[in-house]
């Protein structure tokens, strides 16, 4: 295995383009190193992106949005008071990935690129309407986060392409988001079901909403029916019931070692209801 630590994204892309064997990028490394250790994937070329200037930065954009460097760890995200105030759901999704120790390493980009339908940080990004900037041999493009995972373990990235940043839109006033996941323990698990809700209120009425579900389909789902169930409502019991029903209907999970299909369908509705309440409260502040 060759280890590269390029100083620019362009250099990283050209190393990747020239590589002929298995190539992996290192952002946080919490997935790549586990695979390396298990002997399941031993890359021929490992390209460490953390030494590229700017990758550790969280930048406030002029329009009120945020740009998050690809090597920003969960711990750095959680320590950024302004970002947490704007997008608490996005941050709490990331903060649920692994332990305190793993938080010192794991990154949003890495979690996204791992392509797991159960990735905890992805539903929050999807609900927020985040986008990623992708750089490749043929230039740069901007892609919504929900389009990045294609199927378990596979993303929209072409060989030689890398994500260079994640952009969060402006939160605006009266907006709130939340992410909840279900795991059997209190910590140290991957979501059995995850749900993120981002919404905007005018007074007591919800004017816009995005609802994303994790671990209930081959990729994280952005579900329009869930959003419609609460838009125009004051999140009363009827709206919450409609939301829970829509979430359970949207869920198309499998049974596996982490949970049964029936459980996931049921709990998708429970979490949607609970996450929506939190997001609604947060939007009032």
């Amino acid at each position: 295995m060759r280890y590269h630590a390029p100083a620019t994204f362009d250099e990283a892309v050209s190393i990747a383009a020239a590589a002929s064997g298995v190539t992996r990028f290192l952002a946080g490394g919490t997935d790549v190193l586990v695979q390396l250790r298990a002997g399941s994937v031993t890359p021929d070329d490992l390209i460490d992106l953390k030494k590229i200037p700017g990758t550790h930065e969280i930048t406030a954009l002029p329009d009120g949005g945020w740009r998050i460097g690809i090597a920003v760890s969960g711990a750095m995200l959680g320590a950024h008071a302004q970002l947490v105030a704007d997008w608490p759901g996005v941050v709490e999704g990331m903060e649920l990935v692994g332990s305190t120790q793993v938080q010192g390493r794991a990154t949003l980009t890495g979690n996204l690129c791992n392509g797991s339908p159960a990735a905890d940080s992805v539903p929050g990004l999807v609900a927020a309407g985040a986008t990623v900037t992708i750089l490749g041999p043929n230039g740069s493009r901007e892609v919504p986060v929900e389009q990045v995972p294609v199927k378990p373990g596979k993303t929209v990235l072409e060989p030689g392409e890398i994500i260079t940043a994640i952009t969060l839109p402006p939160r605006g006033t009266k907006g709130g988001d939340a992410y909840l996941r279900f795991i059997p323990r209190t910590e140290m698990d991957i979501a059995v079901v995850g749900c993120a809700v981002s919404l905007t209120r005018e007074g007591d009425t919800i004017t816009a909403a995005r609802v994303a579900l994790g671990a209930v389909a081959p990729t994280v789902l952005l579900d329009e029916a869930c959003a419609q169930a609460i838009i125009g409502t004051t999140l009363d019991d009827a709206a919450l019931d409609a939301l829970a029903g829509a979430a359970s209907r949207a869920a198309k999970p499998i049974s596996d070692k982490r949970g049964t299909k029936e459980f996931r369908v049921e709990v998708a509705g429970v979490l949607a209801r609970r996450a929506a309440k939190i997001a609604y409260e947060r939007a009032a502040k």
């Binding site: 290192l26 946080g28 250790r37 793993v102 010192g104 390493r105």
Partner: peptide, 10 residues
Amino acid sequence: GRLVPSCLVL
């Protein structure tokens, strides 16, 4: 200065 699992660092 940051707590990490040294098994997940090269």
